[in-house]
Amino acid sequence: MTGKPILYYFNGRGRMESIRRLLAAAGVQFEEEFLETREQYEKLLQDGSLLYQQEPMVETDGMKLVQTRAILNYITAKHNLFGKDLKERAYIDMYVEGTTDLMGNIRVQHKLFPEEKEKNLALIVERATTRYFPVCERVLKNPGQDFLLGNQLTWADVQLIEAILMAEEKAPMVLSHFPLLQAFKARISNVPAIKKFLQPGSQRKPPPNENFVATANRV
C-alpha cells in the first residue's frame, strides 16, 4: 500500500470524475484501478468491498468508501473544503446540489439515441442559462466575491468549474451572457492544483465514448 487513495472505476468520467477533480483540487495524489472485466467486479463483490454492489469505490484511510456523495463529503471534510461553519456548509451543499443536477442532465447525453440528443442538448442549455448559472452569477456580484463563498476555495467552486466545463463541451457559448462566471472560470482554472488537473496527461478523463459505455455494460 502506498498510502494514496485508490479509486476503483472504469477508465472514464462517470460518477468518479467529480471525485478525481476534488482530490486533485485538494492536492491529493491518488492511484486508479480500472475495472475492465466482469471478473474484477465480481472479486470486489466477493471481498465485500462494494457495500451496495455498486461503484465507484475509493479505498482510503483503512476504509472502502462507496456512494459518490459520501465519498465527496469525506474528502471535503478531511481537506477543509467545507467552509468555516455550519452556515457556510449549508450554502456549499445548496450550490453543489444545483450543479450536480445540471451535470446529471449533461452526463446522460452520450447514452441517448441520436433523435433524443438534440432535445436533451436544448434542455441542458435552457437549464444552465435560466436556472443554474444565473444563481452563481448573482452570488459572484457580491463585493470581494472571488469564489462562491468570499475568498475561500470550497467544494462548491470545484463542482461549479466541472459543471461549466462539461456544459461548454456541449454548448461552447453557454457562458456568453455570464461575464462574472467567465472570470470565475479563468480564475479557478489557474489555481495551481486545478490547473495541473486540467493539463494534458493528467488523470482527468475525456468525454465518454462508445468504448467507455461498452466496457461499463460488459463489466
Rank of each mutant, 00 (worst) to 15 (best):
R107G: 06
G144F: 02
Q67A: 04
F147A: 06
L112M: 06
L165N: 04
L123E: 12
R131H: 10
S202L: 04
F113Q: 15
L149E: 01
A77W: 08
L165K: 09
L45I: 11
P179C: 12
Y132G: 06
T68M: 13
G3V: 00
A216F: 13
A193M: 08
L7F: 01
Y74Q: 03
T99C: 13
T76S: 09
F30P: 05
R127E: 14
T129W: 03
I188V: 15
K111P: 00
Q54R: 12
R187G: 08
Q152V: 12
R107C: 03
E162A: 13
M1H: 13
N217W: 00
L102Y: 09
P143Q: 04
N190A: 15
V191W: 09
A128N: 09
E55F: 07
I75A: 01
I194T: 08
L45M: 12
M57L: 15
K43G: 05
R89N: 02
Q29G: 12
M1A: 14
I194N: 08
M94P: 00
Y132N: 10
V96P: 05
K4W: 00
R38C: 00
K117A: 07
P114L: 04
R20H: 01
M103Y: 02
A90Q: 04
F10T: 04
Q54V: 06
A122L: 12
L44F: 10
R138K: 13
F147L: 08
R15K: 13
P192W: 03
T130M: 05
Y91R: 05
S49E: 13
R15V: 02
M63A: 13
K64A: 09
S189A: 15
K196H: 05
E162W: 07
T2Y: 02
Q152N: 11
T130R: 15
N209C: 12
S176F: 04
V108A: 03
I75Y: 00
I161M: 06
T37V: 05
P206A: 06
L44E: 01
N142S: 07
N209M: 08
D146Y: 14
A25Y: 06
Y74K: 07
T68S: 14
S189L: 08
L140A: 11
C136E: 06
D85F: 00
I164V: 12
G144Y: 00
I124R: 08
D61T: 07
N142E: 11
F197Q: 01
A25E: 01
P192Y: 02
A25C: 00
Q54I: 08
R89H: 02
P5V: 03
G201Q: 07
D61S: 13
K87N: 01
F10W: 08
Q145M: 12
E137F: 14
E126R: 15
C136Y: 15
G48N: 10
F30E: 03
L148Y: 10
L160R: 13
K205V: 01
Q203T: 03
V158F: 02
Q203G: 01
M16F: 00
E115Y: 14
K205N: 01
I71D: 05
E88P: 05
N120M: 11
E36Q: 11
I161E: 06
L148R: 07
T100P: 09
L50Y: 02
A156S: 12
K119A: 09
K205H: 01
L160W: 06
D93A: 05
D93E: 11
G150S: 03
T130K: 15
R38K: 09
